[in-house]
């Protein structure tokens, strides 16, 4: 029945709880994200932002409640289809999750390889994406020798290389100087204009102020609870948090 409430929702969370043992990381979250929305999840450290994103790509499973992606109930998705679910997303992980033993090129290329793309296409696409994030010179480096900001840009490149429908970005600019941050945010905006749904988790209100489009929603999370939703016009009541 929830499936028919809103046709344009691509992500739906319905009374979702997530416990880590005794720790309640998320409490009764109900949230709809429409197709092509540009949404911020804002909250202090430990609020549950990363946990919320994890539930969307089945990095964790809900303790209670339901999550629907594209109308598919994640608690009923067969194991075999999980890779297909994950290919809908481009995920920028807070800790980057780069493979330390693979070169920058291979780290980005693996997304396309897993999709079964042709070698020639992969070669071209990966190079062009790395160029966009300004990392084409480090093609053959291994991630551990790169700086935090450089690693973050690789993570961004990997997230967008598969042209995903949904981008989940967990503190995507946490380690970047202002200029690099702007490049990354511009990229995310560009994807949004091309039809992607973008969800950004951050504690950085400056980032939100700078980036959010008029009418864009900001969801406030605190201690695992949804506090309120603001739009960027009314974004001035940030003081409540």
């Amino acid at each position: 029945m929830i499936e028919n409430q809103n046709k344009s929702s691509i992500i739906r969370m319905f009374h979702v709880h997530k416990d880590y043992g005794a720790k309640k990381a998320l409490i009764d979250i109900t949230l709809d994200i429409s197709k092509n929305e540009f949404l911020f999840i804002r909250g202090p450290s430990g609020a549950g932002k990363t946990t919320l994103l994890k539930l969307l790509y089945l990095g964790e499973t809900v303790s209670k409640g339901q999550v629907l992606i594209d109308g598919i109930n994640l608690s009923r998705i067969p194991r075999k289809r999980i890779p297909l679910l994950r290919r809908k997303y481009g995920i920028i992980f807070q800790d980057y999750k780069l493979i330390a033993t693979k070169t920058v090129f291979d780290n980005v290329a693996i997304v396309l390889e897993a999709m079964g793309k042709k070698r020639r296409f992969i070669e071209k696409k990966v190079r062009s994406v790395l160029r966009t994030v300004g990392m084409e010179e480090r093609l053959h480096s291994l991630p551990p020798i790169l700086s935090g900001g450089e690693q973050q840009r690789i993570a961004v490149a990997r997230a967008i290389v598969g042209d995903p429908k949904i981008i989940l970005a967990d503190e995507p600019t946490g380690n970047l100087d202002e200029d690099s941050a702007d490049i990354v945010l511009d990229l995310l905006k560009r994807f949004h204009t091309r039809g992607a749904t973008v969800v950004i988790a951050t504690h950085d209100k400056e980032l939100i102020r700078k980036t959010s489009k008029p009418g864009g929603r900001v969801v406030h999370l605190k201690e695992g609870c949804l506090q309120k939703t603001t739009t960027s016009e009314s974004g001035s009541d940030d003081s409540l948090l």
Partner: peptide
Amino acid sequence: IMRLVGAT
């Protein structure tokens, strides 16, 4: 990581 980025 490979699984997280959609590898079967």
